[in-house]
Design a protein around this nucleic acid. Sequence first.
DNA 1: CTTGGCACTCGGTAAAATCGAGTGCCAGAG
DNA 2: CTCTGGCACTCGATTTTACCGAGTGCCAAG
Lengths: 361, 361
Amino acid sequence: MPDTQDLDRRKAAILEAVVTEYIGTAQPVGSHHVARAAGINVSSATIRSEMVALEREGYLVQPHTSAGRVPTDKGYRFFVDQLAEPGVLGPAQRHKVSRFFEQVHGEMEELLERTSGLLSDLTSYASVVVPPSHDAAVVRSVQLVGLGARVALLVAVLADGAVEKRAIELPEEVPDEVLAVASGRLQAAAQGHPLGSVHIAEPSGDAAVDRVVSLAESALGDLAGEAHDRIFVGGPSRLAAAFDAVDTVRAVLATLEQQLVVVSLLRDVLERGLSVAIGTEHGYEPLSACAVVVAPVSVDGQLGGAVGLVGPTRMNYPQALAAARVVGEQLGDRLRATLDAGSSARPVRETRPRRRARGRR
Amino acid sequence: MPDTQDLDRRKAAILEAVVTEYIGTAQPVGSHHVARAAGINVSSATIRSEMVALEREGYLVQPHTSAGRVPTDKGYRFFVDQLAEPGVLGPAQRHKVSRFFEQVHGEMEELLERTSGLLSDLTSYASVVVPPSHDAAVVRSVQLVGLGARVALLVAVLADGAVEKRAIELPEEVPDEVLAVASGRLQAAAQGHPLGSVHIAEPSGDAAVDRVVSLAESALGDLAGEAHDRIFVGGPSRLAAAFDAVDTVRAVLATLEQQLVVVSLLRDVLERGLSVAIGTEHGYEPLSACAVVVAPVSVDGQLGGAVGLVGPTRMNYPQALAAARVVGEQLGDRLRATLDAGSSARPVRETRPRRRARGRR
DNA sequence: CTTGGCACTCGGTAAAATCGAGTGCCAGAG
DNA sequence: CTCTGGCACTCGATTTTACCGAGTGCCAAG
């Protein structure tokens, strides 16, 4: 157990015991239980006085006088930052993950959907997968398809298996022939280039075509810049199992339904350099009963996407962190592997570099 | 109030009163409350004896002696079939629907996603949208994109704004050039034809190409035959509000996560000619506390899709039925409107035919 | 057949009693 | 000064008891 900064060794050990026990039982933890815990060799009386201190410092609370202690958000935070063992997946879980990524193939949307299912399965918490932007993905094909009189659909197929589409509102009625020409010009300009760096060379001479092309070009830019327009939520029913107050369940589910909120939540957390947001740390009131574990999904160092887990604050942090990290990494690798497949020179597939990101906080 | 087949007028009126009251209050209904209800002009004593009969016949139950009565599934069923007023949407809701369908545009997936949100908003129940098959939709474009060494992605863009994709496992490594040729042949054979009736004319002479094409063709057939591969669930958090037992919530959510189950549930219900399945009528045990309201989404008479609502058995059936029907119809109309847009001759857009399907049961 | 009256039931709520895990404090030992 | 065992005390959870009243079934009179 490492020496810690704001808590002496014994207090830390006690805090750890309380958190561990509480995570397991969901019952307030009394001094006796702590005394019985491994690595604690003092009497319950001593522990009591230490607990008073821990409570004064904000790491623990009593639900009421003469009850055991429960960790506060601050308590969990200390646990996560200073105490928790790095956490590894069990062999069964590890196997599940590797088999999953061996076996899954091809299409992006399905990959992401199933990844979120995997993550939720591994941990029994609700999971969220936010795909990275397609900025660097090579365009295989772009086309415009007319829908209504003044609506066209822009469809881009990327080398990583993603198919992105966006409806474009046309300012005027555009004949199919014009769309076809515009589509061709787009295709010529985009194919083989990363989505983020598509530029149309020069005007065609036909004003109508050019208007459409420029609209489509900016839509393409949107596709590149924005995150994928969809997030993937896995196992929401796990939430119902994790909380017993039906109100809490409702509030959390309602929040997860708002994709934008979830995306910015994860982004915020990552930007603050955290991998866990506990209780109110993220500032989203309806999720104050939850902890959110986040791991980045980076493709070639370019971060963008994220995977997340949402559970009660008394979640199994080591396991959740391990699962999120592993799945995030693997997903990133997977996306990178297919990113530029199909560009003229197929790159050598190196044996996956196991960059073991082991840095706390 | 119509004369009924198995229940005399008065019993029916009493049953109706019980159901209505119970739907509103979720409390067992006593004879006094019924006596006070509109249209009932007998004393509570009379009602009591009638209720005994209704209970013997299985329309009502007492949670315990000396409590009021609660409708059974059979009771709800009678209510829905014989008693409930047709049910209309309020002007505000009606307005919401029409504004929604005016304003939404273009892309299929978003349309469906938002439709399920709409339905859930209108009713405060969880909603399900199962899109119809694309059988009749005209193909605008088909292509094959190479992903991994032996995986290709088949992408079809349909005139109705849908983009369907499917990964194809190739039996052997296929060079990009072959894929391109195959892609071209597919495109030539499919473009302008309904997805369901694409046939490749004749072999190309190149065996490798032909193998790929035939794989792709059968994949295309799958896309046409199967329902859309995704269903859209709206407002699952509403379920948490509708039930107070957290276990029930979990079970129902878990069921809704299994897309296949939901699809066949809706299909079963529709095939039996019902628009409501109450409690155990559908045979899916975890949903025995729920009622499921279903309305077909038919495009040009060709049925296929469905919209559904999932709520507690004590749901507001008239309103739910009305909402599901209207949204189902409108969605069908919308899909039909764009179905063949873009085929050589754009059809005249008739003012939407308000075929008012008013047939009970 | 209907109805008012009446005795009876029984779940839900409230008040009272009990239990026990857990606390804070303290005096004595190390 | 720290640790520990002992002890009185607290207070939520659980059980017990009491009570209320909505609601029932039955019946005799209209």
